[in-house]
Amino acid sequence: MTETLNAITVEVNGVPRTARVPARLSLVDWLRDELRLTGTHVGCEHGVCGACSILLDGEPIRSCLLYAVQADGHRVTTVEGLAQPDGSLSVLQDSFCEAHGLQCGYCTSGLLIAAQALLDANPHPSDAQIREAIGGNLCRCTGYQQVVEAIRLAAERGAGKITP
């Protein structure tokens, strides 16, 4: 049995990407295995851990809970799309390095996505709001302490400012 392939066009990190995908291919598998954007990670494939978080039309979602075919016509931002146009680290990424808001790095992409979405909507969040925003991202290394510190630092440094 061959599976029907569906033509899709998705804007990924600002670049239109086209493909023909089987319906059951999840967005995260498409991003990782076909586009080779391996910065987005798979942790549970059932929507709990948040490691696969990406921005869909600017909002953070779990990319394991979306089929790639459903993203047709939409805009996707992955961790690879967070850096500044010249490739240097964003304020948020740099703040994670400064506060050592990560260890093994596996959940980090999802945390960065969640944090960037928070700061975009709320440039000066309280600690409680930071924890709320990352509450759906499980991390086994950090106990969240230095993650919260990194996001707080990023906010202080203006990571939430919409830069032109």
Binding site: P60, I61, R62, L65, E132, A133, G135, G136
Partner: peptide
């Protein structure tokens, strides 16, 4: 209900 990411979708 769930978390930010699940409520967005």
């Amino acid at each position: 209900v769930g978390h930010v990411q699940t409520r967005n979708r």
